[in-house]
């Protein structure tokens, strides 16, 4: 681990001030990803700004019928919050599919959005990696890439975003509230993370000196027809090969609204409005779901070891949509896939 200074932020503006004063500084809350990366010497912040004492721990209803979740709410508190369980069970399910009970107790909502890729080359400081050391090259493109992205990749990077929570948030149309040196702003979750293009060292569109203050969920929670399905190499405590968040609004068997997002396949949660639009007005059938899957996976490219992900994702999408349509969401504890 490198040497660093430690400061405790007293409020949000103090955090912004500390961040702005020291370009090498990083915010720390749960620490579950940052400390891990610091121990690997991948992250080497000059200063850690402890924000755990900021008043960002509330979950409150918004005037529009949605939910505003403070950035410091621990993942497990969010998953088990009665309003989330009742109105946004897709989000609860996705959170519970990730990490372990201990890590969910520690990790904050804001931190979850900031977690970095599990690409093995990113983690190994002896190998080239554009995300860790811009300009050194991508070792994964011609290397071990079984876990890597099939969508939205670039010649610079094929890493994936490892978050489960973000996939559900993308599907639900969540907003990210941000405070920074020039005031407050809001980004759609789907615009929060970015594709690697030629700047893979940037995971998100968060500007310098900015801090996530809250996540906002719109009123529509898809509490009846939803499912989160995570496919991985062991049955728990592993990162996704592919995960699917699906939510439907049904009138009879007809789809009036559809949401679909993928995890484990791209540098950000992968959502396609086109695929969702194609489902609207259609019957909830495997054929229509397959068509939506094809639209969502349009442009998917395989590297040497991850070609299976394309077919796996296609099947997982159809399956998850069927689970949603049948109102038989995937249990995260009972491992038989519904």
């Amino acid at each position: 681990m490198n040497n660093f200074d430690y400061s405790r932020a007293s409020d949000v503006s103090d955090a912004i001030r500390l961040l702005t004063a020291d370009p090498g500084a990083k915010l720390i809350a749960g620490g579950t990803n940052l400390i891990d990366l610091m121990k690997e010497n991948v992250e080497r912040p000059s200063r850690l700004i402890d924000i755990t004492r900021l008043p960002l721990r509330d979950i409150e209803e918004t005037a529009g019928g949605g939910l505003r979740i403070g950035a410091l709410v621990p993942n497990s508190d969010l998953a088990y919050h009665p309003l989330v369980e009742q109105r946004y069970p897709l989000l609860a399910s996705a959170i519970l599919a990730g990490a372990s009970a201990q890590l969910r107790n520690m990790a904050s909502v804001g931190g979850n959005l900031m977690q970095r890729t599990r690409c093995a080359y990113f983690y190994d400081t002896t190998t080239p990696c554009n995300k860790r050391s811009p300009g050194t090259g991508c070792s994964a493109i011609d290397g071990l890439n079984r876990n890597h992205a099939i969508l939205g990749t670039s010649q610079s990077c094929i890493a994936t975003n490892p978050s489960d929570m973000s996939v559900a948030l993308a599907a639900l149309g969540a907003l990210v509230h941000i405070a920074g040196p020039s005031g407050q702003r809001t980004l759609a979750l789907t615009d929060f993370h970015r594709l690697p293009d030629d700047k893979p060292h940037l995971d998100t569109n968060l500007g310098s000196g900015e801090i996530i203050t809250a996540i906002e969920l719109p009123a529509h929670g898809f509490a009846r027809n939803f499912s989160y399905l995570k496919i991985r190499d062991r049955l728990s405590y592993a990162f996704a090969l592919v995960s699917v968040a699906a939510a439907l609004e049904l009138e009879g068997n007809a789809i009036s609204e559809a949401r679909l997002a993928l995890g484990g396949v791209a540098h950000k949660p992968w959502r396609s409005l086109e695929a969702e639009a194609a489902l609207r007005g259609k019957a909830a059938t495997p054929d229509h779901f397959g068509h939506a899957a094809d639209l969502l996976l349009q442009g998917a490219t395989a590297r040497s070891h991850n070609g299976f992900k394309i077919e796996l994702a296609r099947r997982a999408i159809v399956r998850t949509l069927m689970q949603a349509a049948n109102a038989t969401p995937q249990s995260q504890a009972h491992k038989k896939i519904a």
Partner: peptide
């Protein structure tokens, strides 16, 4: 232990 998988309780 994250990528060298050994069985966990759920397995």
């Amino acid at each position: 232990f994250a990528e060298y998988h050994i069985p966990v309780n759920a397995d």
